[in-house]
Design a protein around this nucleic acid. Structure first.
Length: 464
RNA sequence: GGCGAGUUAGCCAAGUGGUAAGGCAGAGGUCUGCAAAACCUCCACCGCGGGUUCGAAUCCCGCACUCGCCUCCA
């Protein structure tokens, strides 16, 4: 089997992936901040993480994936306070909606979905370790991480930290600190804010500490893969590394993978601030199928390239997915027992498919190989040369690809009622009673069944 | 200003030294009682200018333009 190669932001190189423990992968995938519905751009990242997970599993790794739910943060606190409800009351509907959206897009569930508010103790403990090791200071009741005590700071983002002092956006934080580069670990309680009473004082955790505390709890002090959107590289992931490695003295995450943004139709980053985003629900309301959205976001571009989200992209995805469906229909009934991929009609397409995915998850290239195969095989089907074994091999390949894509609708087993109506229609056609034949065709269409008359007889498929 | 990514057909996109995968759209054709669908075929001098090389979309230099990050945004 080809070895899996992944692009590591830390080195800037595509590296051969070797897990810490053979056969097992522990990974932490940055999840949503549940202050609102996740937008379609957020889901590009989650679909990238789903792709990674599925490819790892396909490569026979046992995967332990953790996805955090950030349920305490400035926006959440403000919004909850405005509504005069608790943080939990405020975030609950968005958490529920998030899981519904995951299901809609067929994103596989992670093993753990820890919530920040349920891990205050772990965060406080970690901060206490940092206190003991002299990496922190207190100002106005808040605890800060002192960057000057961590020389490697900036390695992930490849930033020259001395330049940050002159940065254009210093001091946007609501809280004061000694040095603009420092970041807050524990925020002192402010009037009217929900807070936790801890040895660090009354307050709440900073943004970054949750990911360090929760990843270490579920994955250990050192684990294999950490992912997120490119905007997480700095400061979020940089800060996670600083506080984690300062506390443990060990390498935090070994491979850092980052998904590029989804852009709006004119090429700007999709963000809440610009209001140029859509939620998944809004896109569905426009009539697009979930699988077309999934396909568009996964195959529209390699995960490290920007992708512009547009109606054209979705329409193209919808047509492409239907072409895959159609191929499955054309293969017809597959004799049992099915043969393996590669036997018969599969050829070496599976190898090319797998190789592309092992090359830093190059799904767009893999899909190209798949369609190339489909075109070639269609010619064989058309000429009637394809054997039953070849058709079974092609079907096996389609199912193999769908373990990653998860968008294909395979033809269902024989439907007796549909078969009976088709037979009746054929009889009508044979006696040239086309009025009756067309009537039956209309009935089936109303049932969501579309008929295709071919020289080999009538095929049918569900169109909804 | 610093750092990073990018510029391939009407649109999306793969391709990192040997003369351009694939999808969508479009045109033509096949099939067909009609229709719809489907299938096939066709469709690119790879941002601009130099250079290296027998050979470059692919390497080097310069230029132009786009996008992102530079403290709480996937």
């Amino acid at each position: 089997m080809t070895s899996l190669r992944l692009h590591n932001t830390m080195s800037g190189q595509t590296e051969t992936f070797t897990p810490l423990v053979a056969g097992q992968v522990r990974m932490y995938t940055c999840g949503p901040t549940v202050h609102d519905y996740a937008h379609i751009g957020n889901f590009r990242s989650f679909l990238f993480e789903d792709l990674l997970r599925r490819v790892l599993i396909q490569n026979e790794y046992q995967v332990t994936q953790v996805m955090n739910l950030t349920d305490v943060e400035d926006r959440i606190i403000k919004k909850a306070a405005d509504k005069e409800i608790t943080i939990d009351e405020f975030t609950e509907p968005y958490i529920e909606a998030f899981f519904e959206d995951l299901d809609t897009l067929r994103i596989e569930r992670a093993e753990h979905y820890p919530r920040a508010t349920r891990h205050i103790f772990e965060m406080v403990s970690l901060i206490e370790v940092l206190n003991e090791k002299g990496h922190t200071y207190v100002s106005d009741g808040s605890t800060y991480f002192r960057i000057a005590t961590f020389p490697r700071y900036g390695r992930l983002a490849h930033l020259d930290v001395s330049g940050l002092k002159a940065g254009a956006r210093v001091d946007v934080d609501d809280y004061g600190k000694d040095d603009p580069r420092d970041f807050v670990l524990w925020k002192a309680r402010k009037p009217g804010e929900q807070s936790w009473d801890t040895p660090l004082g009354a307050g709440r955790p900073g943004w970054h500490i949750e990911c360090s505390a929760m990843s270490m709890k579920y994955l250990g002090e050192s684990f294999d893969i950490h992912t997120g959107g490119v905007d997480n590289i700095f400061p979020h992931h940089e800060n996670e590394i600083a506080q984690s490695e300062a506390a443990t003295g060990k390498t935090f995450a070994r491979y850092w993978l980052h998904a590029q943004f989804l852009q709006d139709a004119v090429g700007a980053k999709m963000s809440k601030r610009l209001k140029n985003f859509s939620t998944l629900r809004e896109v569905l309301a426009e009539g697009y199928q979930p699988r077309a959205i999934r396909y568009a976001l996964m195959t529209g571009a390699h995960y490290r390239s920007p992708l512009a989200f547009s109606p054209e992209l979705l329409k193209a995805a919808d047509s492409a997915v239907k072409r895959l469906d159609e191929f499955a229909v054309r293969l017809g009934p597959i004799p049992s027992p099915p043969v393996g991929v590669g036997q018969g009609g599969g050829g070496d397409v599976q190898q090319r498919w797998d190789d592309a995915l092992c090359d830093d998850l190059n799904l767009p290239a893999a899909v190209g190989h798949l369609f190339e195969f489909i075109k070639t095989f269609n010619t064989r089907l058309e000429s009637g040369k394809a054997t039953a074994d070849e058709r079974a091999g092609a079907m096996a390949m389609l199912r193999h690809a769908n373990r990653i894509l998860d968008v294909i609708t395979f033809p269902q087993a024989v439907d007796a009622e549909v078969e009976r109506m088709i037979t009746e229609r054929q009889a009508a056609r044979d006696r040239r009673d086309f009025a009756r034949a067309d009537q039956i065709r209309q009935q089936l269409l109303a049932m969501g069944i579309q008929l295709d008359d071919t020289k080999d007889g009538t095929r049918w498929k569900r169109i909804r």
